[in-house]
Simulated assay, not measured.
Amino acid sequence: MLVRVRAAGVDQGTWHQVTGLPYLGRLAFGLPRPRMPVPGLDMAGIVEAVGTKVTGFRPGDEVFGIGRGTFAEYTTAKRIVPKPANLTFEQAAAVPVSACTALEVLRGVEAGQRVLVIGAGGGVGSYAVQLATVFGASVTGVCGPTKVEFVRSLGATEVIDYTSTELSGQYDRVLDIAGSRPLPTLLRLLTPRGTLVLVGAEEGGRWIGGLSRSFGVLVRRPFTRQHLRAPLSIVRTSDLTRLSELLTEGRITPAVDQTLPLIDVPTAITHLRNSRVRGKIVITP
């Protein structure tokens, strides 16, 4: 399907894609040059044309999901679902990668559990706080001082400013989003059979980046009763459908920090890397 892009979301994967860092990531992004010359994955738009084998969609349908090279006027769709009528295109474009990642790392969370979200003010974190609350968990969000009120507005039971307060207590699930804390520090925050989930990371240098902590999880996993995970971000059509239901019901809401024109993609990526964004930045053609 060919989709006319009305809005495209910016996520950390975009930075890795355009910089080719860490170098190990080039096995996926492309070794000598990017496999996708135009960056961008998240999108919301209008179906322009469909192939002969496409069913369920027709030109004129409003959709959101994943495309190839969405920082453009048109994209070929990979995984899309109908856009909720109560969302703008800008809101819908802020959903796919970040919200699907949050849904994946929260699988198995039960009502009454305590969940710690480190990095609660970003794209994945803003959805993780909301989804964990929907699932009935008590959520503690960790963020910088400029995002405390924002994270509280997402439904967090408690918000911790990491610049002034040390993390303590024990949680059934700890999500460390784009963090750099050592694994032993994080494991001390878990209950004896709690779950630690690493969601990306930015330390580790230019060669392997945050993959160093993922390797650490694999090494430690056989020797502890605690559950250690470092999943990849995967967008499934079934997850987009589930999120669409929650969005339509108003149980979760996309947090769009700002909308920028296509020419300002470099500025958007810089803001994202400097942790200045509350939720997501969205690009419009």
Rank of each mutant, 00 (worst) to 15 (best):
V3W: 00
D11W: 01
Q12C: 01
Q12P: 07
H16K: 09
G20M: 13
R26M: 11
L27P: 03
P32R: 08
R33D: 00
P34Y: 03
M36F: 08
V38A: 07
L41W: 01
A44S: 15
T55H: 13
G60Y: 11
E62Y: 00
F64D: 00
R68L: 11
F71S: 02
A72S: 14
P84I: 00
A93E: 03
A99T: 13
T101S: 13
L106A: 08
L106K: 07
E110F: 10
E110C: 12
A111L: 07
V115H: 03
G121E: 04
Y127Q: 04
V129E: 12
T133R: 15
T133F: 10
V134A: 04
G136H: 10
T140P: 12
V148H: 05
F150P: 02
D161N: 15
Y162G: 04
L167R: 02
L175D: 02
A178W: 10
P182V: 07
P184Q: 13
L186H: 07
L187C: 07
L189D: 08
T195Q: 14
T195L: 12
G200W: 00
R206Y: 15
F215D: 07
F223N: 09
Q226T: 05
L240D: 00
R242P: 00
L247Q: 03
I252V: 15
P254S: 13
T259C: 10
L260A: 10
L260D: 09
V265N: 07
P266D: 08
T270D: 15
N274C: 06
V277E: 02
V282C: 12
P285R: 06
